[in-house]
Design a protein around this nucleic acid. Structure first.
Length: 331
DNA sequence: AACTCGGGGTA
DNA sequence: TACCCAGAGTT
């Protein structure tokens, strides 16, 4: 959950998830449909599928015993080098580095590293620094079993330095224990390091989402497992150049009763903007009240009762549309 | 080696 | 608005 997602955002999701799936076995034996609702709104939904698959791999290939070496841990789906190393350090007393966003920022500043984010050259340099910096030996008085705590404390401190003092903007160098050896601090370049990612202008896209309603239920479909909102439920999209009434009848076999065009504002449905990392999506919900014809329903589609929104695996903008619809429905 | 994947916090 | 977050998988 914490991959590319801030701690404060994750906490409530984490608590709900562990309450529902308290053991690795309970997660492994669950279905993806059981898991996605708990990830709804958190984003990067491939992480949920990977976590589910990883639990099953531990059961089937490792006999229920979680692997203990960084290399084997990193073979689990969704677990890369940094996450695998973090697990190995915290759980199994390994001596391996981690490299998250916080650590990268600290290393770039302390060593005055200017490189283009995401390039192999920079990543390689940072990994090398992180490895060189690992504590080499323990204080003599510490008993051996404290090795894990010691190494775990080190990587935790490394991340916390970036999270609390060496922050992205306005770092508190005055309180930083590394200030006297920090190249960025010495040269006044804390604002320039690490280098910012050059980002292309996000392209604009538009989608018309069909809000097909019968009585108190709305028609949803499951999105394909890969791509945007993979594995989540969503509203059917009206292909460009298609007529809504004809399309709904042809594809879903449900006769349209009324349609609200985008120009109609009475239902409160307006085009709104949803921002992704790599494009901007203008969404126009199109309210279609239909007569029910379940015999002609396509596979993968189903009716969701509007009172069951809370436990549905919906992406945020779809949830927003349906919440608005629910509130506008006559009781 | 570059691109893709979501949503939200923050300045 | 722009940037980035306890990165990993895909092409």
């Amino acid at each position: 959950m914490l991959q590319q997602t801030q701690v404060v955002t994750v906490i409530p999701y984490y608590q709900r998830f562990l309450a529902r799936f308290p053991t690795l076995e309970s997660l492994a034996t669950a279905s993806v449909e059981d898991i996605m609702p708990l990830w709804s709104g958190l984003g990067y939904y491939a992480r949920a599928r990977n976590l589910h698959a990883a639990a099953q791999v531990v059961i089937t290939r490792h006999g229920g015993m979680f692997p203990e070496t960084p290399e084997i841990i990193a073979e689990l789906p969704g677990i890369g080098r940094s996450t695998a190393n973090a697990i190995a350090v915290v759980c199994f007393a390994a001596r391996v580095p981690i490299l998250d966003g916080n650590v990268k920022r600290v290393l770039c500043r302390v060593f005055g590293i200017a490189g283009i984010p995401g390039t192999a050259a920079l990543e390689s340099r940072l990994w090398q620094h992180a490895e060189d910096l690992l504590p080499k030996q323990l204080p003599k008085r510490l008993p051996k079993h404290d090795l894990s705590k010691n190494m775990a404390t080190y990587i935790q401190a490394q991340m916390d330095l970036g999270a609390t003092l060496c922050t992205r903007s306005r770092p508190q160098c005055i309180a930083c224990p590394l200030a006297d050896i920090c190249i960025a601090h010495a040269t006044g370049r804390t604002a320039e390091l690490p280098q910012k990612k050059s980002r292309r202008v996000a392209p604009e896209r538009h989608a018309t989402l069909l809000v097909i309603v019968h009585e108190n239920r709305v028609l949803l479909e499951t999105r394909p497992p890969v791509g945007i909102w993979g594995g989540l439920l969503s509203l059917p999209e009206l292909p460009a150049e298609e007529n809504a009434a004809a399309y709904v009848e042809k594809k879903f076999g449900a006769r349209m009763l009324t349609v609200s065009p985008p120009s109609s504002r009475d239902d409160g449905f307006k085009t709104f903007l949803h921002i992704f990392t790599h494009f901007r999506l203008h969404i126009t919900p199109l309210l279609c009240r239909v007569s029910l014809r379940p015999s002609a329903m396509e596979v993968g589609c189903f009716w969701l009762d509007l009172t069951a929104l809370g436990t549905a695996a919906l992406p945020t903008p779809v949830r927003r549309i349906l919440e608005e619809l629910r509130l506008s429905q006559p009781a």
